[in-house]
Structures are given as C-alpha cells and as structure tokens.
C-alpha cells in the first residue's frame, strides 16, 4: 500500500489486554492541574519498569469538571487490577494529595470500582470527613493549603495496551518531526494515550536477549546502525526509526488513533523524509489483538 508516496507495510501491531482507569484532576487553574497530572503520569511509560502506563488524555474546561474548575483527564493502564490499584493509590498520595489546590474525581464508571481516596483519607488523622453528594462519596482531607477533596473511588475497565506503529525515515530529524505531527493529531482522539516521552519511543524492543537475565532487548532488526550486521528490516536509505505506542479503552479507539496518526504523517508526503510505516509485533502469537495497518487505513477496523 502506498499513500502519498509513503509505503505502508502489510503488517500488524500486536496488543494486549490491560486494565484501565480514568481520573479527572482539577485545580485552581490549568497550570496547577497540569503540574498534578504531569507528576501523576511521570515515570509511567511502560509496564515493564514503571508498573503502569499513564498519560494525559485531554484538557477539560471548567464546565466539564465536577467542581467547575479547569482540569485534565488522565488515563492509566496496567497489566492487572492489583497493580493498577497499587499504582493509583501511590500516585494519588504522592502526586495529587501533595499538589496545591488539586482535587481528584472519577473519570469513568464501571461495576468494578478501585480506590481513589478511600485509603488516602487516613492522611487526615481523624479529621477527614466524607460527604455523600448525589449518591457519590467524596472525602475532605484537611491539608495545609485548605482541604484536599477527592472522590472515594473510580471505575476500572478492561482496556488494550500496545497498539503501535513505526515511522521509518531518511534522517533522525525527519523521523522525529513526523512523529511529532502524528502525536499532535492523535491527541485529538479520545480514550487513548501515548505513554512514552512526548508520545514517542526510540528504543523499540524484541523479546529475549543474548544475556539470560534480560527478557527484552533492543529491536536490532530496526536499528539503522546495525544494517550490515543483523537480519535488518531497513532498506539502505532509512537512517532512523521511531515508534508511537498507544494504550486505549477499546480496540476501536486504538485503531482510530493509529489511523489518524499514520494519515497525518502520510499527509506530509514522501518529501518529509518518511519512507515507510511499519508496526511492531511478536508474530501474532502473544497478543490477542492485531491491528492490521492496511485494514485500519482502509477503515476496516474489524
């Protein structure tokens, strides 16, 4: 498949089942909502080392939030419910409770509820009070800037993580510029996050390593400096590869964000330096969800 001179490989991204949640963070102004949300989603690029993958989904205006203050919505994903619960509580305690004027609310409803402020309330040392408003329980915890307000729980849903595509370009600046363009377009798609720095990852991995203790190592087939040494996936003119990884609430959400991102790159044309779009997979044997690039770009997201 060729779009605007850019080749789309006949391959697929392979994704996994995850557990996800959404939290709404509000503050006195957007600046402090971002401080809280950036802290909460910091060091949350990959479940391999961080426990969770998290990111800011979008900005919320004052009339979209429960307490009529500006805010942001955060999506957080983990491989299992236990890790998600642990990580959410830790990050609430260290990042939201600590951030001046910040408050936290559930951003998603589900039959499965996990603690948002349910255990954090004990920080109040007996002075915490709860309020049940329209059937929803909130906790008020006295803190030095006034009162920290948080909803008791948020919903936990089944989600998908690991949707991705690779940008193969003739130079590092060209690959990065294309990746930035794609991420900006993908930020407009709801229910997804790109958890890596700036939404882009340069160190794609393969399963296993020559070192017995390592279970993942560099994806040598896509490393441009190893072109003559390994069974490479890269043609002569490709000098840099970058990957965009997507976690989302549903298959359709991820497929849509991949379509939007790839389309944004293709709109730049081959003159941008991008030669090919590919995707990372493990042969289709590990992950239950396969995002076939050709299907997605012909809007067949079955």
């Amino acid at each position: 498949m060729l779009i605007n001179g850019i080749q789309i490989d006949d391959t697929f991204a392979e994704a996994f089942n995850m557990r996800g949640t959404r939290i709404i963070i509000t503050a006195q102004n957007l600046k402090w909502a971002y401080h809280a949300a950036n802290a909460m989603t910091g060091f949350a690029t990959s479940v391999i080392g961080c426990g969770v993958e998290a990111g800011i989904e979008r900005e919320l205006s004052a009339n979209e939030t429960p307490d009529n203050r500006p805010g942001v919505s955060v999506l957080m994903f983990a491989m299992g419910s236990k890790v998600l619960m642990q990580q959410l509580e830790t990050r609430m305690g260290q990042c939201i409770l600590t951030c001046p004027t910040a408050a936290a609310f559930a951003g998603i409803t589900s039959e499965d509820n996990i603690s948002l402020g349910k255990h954090l309330r004990y920080f109040g040392d007996g002075y915490q009070t709860s309020k049940l408003i329209n059937g929803i329980r909130y906790w008020r915890i006295p803190v030095m800037d006034g009162e920290f307000l948080t909803q008791e729980t948020t919903g936990m849903v089944r989600a998908i993580g690991g949707g991705n595509f690779l940008i193969l370009a003739t130079s590092q600046p060209a690959a990065l510029a294309a990746a930035e363009t794609a991420v900006e377009a993908m930020k407009q798609v709801p229910n997804v996050i790109m958890p890596f720095p700036g939404g882009v990852v340069r160190s794609g991995s393969k399963v296993g390593s020559k070192y017995p203790k390592m279970f993942a190592s560099t994806n040598d087939a896509f490393c441009p400096t190893l072109k003559g040494l390994v069974k490479t996936e890269l043609s002569d003119e490709i000098e840099s590869v970058m990957e965009i990884v997507i976690d989302g609430l549903t298959f359709e959400d991820i497929a849509e964000s991949m379509r939007v991102g790839i389309q944004a790159i293709c709109n730049l044309g081959v003159a941008s330096g991008v030669g090919r779009i590919s995707a990372g997979n493990y042969g289709g044997k590990l992950g239950p969800h396969l995002f076939k690039l050709h299907d997605i770009l012909s809007e067949k997201t079955s």
Binding site: N68, I133, Y138, G146
Partner: peptide, 13 residues
Amino acid sequence: THTLPFLALLFRA
C-alpha cells in the same frame, strides 16, 4: 473563614 472546595459540588447538586 474558608472557601471549601466541596461546596462547589454540593451547590451544583
């Protein structure tokens, strides 16, 4: 004297 954040939720209800 205080401005309590939970009052915004209460008065919205």
